[in-house]
């Protein structure tokens, strides 16, 4: 079976900094992949390449069987138009470190914005589904609250609901709990755990090694723009083979 995401030799630099130095990763549908690594290791950049928030310099990424960002003509890859990239992004949902809820819209309006504006679905239907999603993340009572009136944990749960409203085949999480006060981390991880057990394919960039050990099917350790080690969480996080992985885990647990 074709993996839902395949990245082949992906390279990306910001000026003189090589953020991704030949990353090849694949993930099967229904799996949870956690990417861990020190800051600056390129893990967030890689996640952002999967839904084209960053343009890759070379290499190729397929999502759900489709080459993303480019069209192959002969021996060249031609960059897609804005509208074509926008359509491809519908396959994946993204959750950001800083939540990025639309500040001028209420929780409910944030969730129905995509279905109504992008997918052109009927408002009534979108509202019904949004309410079901808000209920699922435990925030039905906050439907009319603006983001500025919600705690960080609540904002992130609304952001997850907003991504799910587009019915993505794949969810990308970019350090979803890093900007939260410690007491609010649990409620967000709870929603993510629930999502994983429902069979959603998830790629999670995280510093929560406990969550990775418990929920991930597979863990990737990245450093300096490259994959250092990958395997089941018991191997990578408990019995790492590489010295760099051991050093990182020791530093995080210290």
């Amino acid at each position: 079976m074709m993996p839902i995401v395949v990245a082949a030799d992906v390279r990306k630099s910001f000026g003189s900094v090589q953020a991704l130095d030949g990353v090849s990763i694949d993930i099967q549908a229904g799996q949870v992949l956690c990417i861990v690594g020190p800051s600056g290791s390129g893990k967030s950049t890689f996640l952002r390449c999967i839904n084209q928030l960053e343009r890759i310099d070379s290499g190729a990424i397929w999502v759900d069987g489709e080459l993303i960002g480019y069209r192959r003509v002969g021996d060249k890859l031609y960059e897609l138009t804005d509208a074509e990239s926008a359509r491809q992004r519908l396959t994946s949902g993204m959750v950001f470190q800083r939540f990025n809820l639309f500040q001028h819209l209420t929780a409910l309006e944030n969730i129905i914005e995509g279905p109504v504006t992008v997918q052109k679905r009927r408002r009534k239907e979108a509202v019904d589904e949004a309410m079901a999603l808000l209920d699922r993340v435990g925030l039905a009572a906050k439907r009319d609250a603006y983001p500025s009136e919600l705690s960080g944990g609540q904002q992130q749960r609304v952001a997850i609901a907003r991504a799910l409203a587009m019915k993505p085949k794949l969810m990308l999480f970019d350090e979803p709990t890093s900007a939260l006060d410690p007491e609010l981390v649990g409620e967000v991880l709870e929603v993510m755990r629930d999502l994983a057990s429902s069979g959603m394919t998830m790629i999670v960039v995280t510093h929560e090694l406990g969550f990775a050990r418990e929920v991930a099917n597979e863990v990737v350790f990245m450093d300096r723009g490259a994959v250092v080690e990958r395997g089941p969480p018991q191997e990578v996080l408990v019995h790492p083979q590489q010295q760099r992985t051991r050093d990182f885990i020791a530093a995080v647990l210290a």
């Binding site: 839904n51 928030l53 926008a86 992004r89 993204m94 950001f96 990025n100 995509g114 992008v118």
Partner: peptide, 21 residues
Amino acid sequence: DTGQTEAAKSIGMTRLTTLRR
């Protein structure tokens, strides 16, 4: 904030829709 634009892109908006909405 640029995060607003990124979030709009992530739910499949084109640049023009992002600007307008």
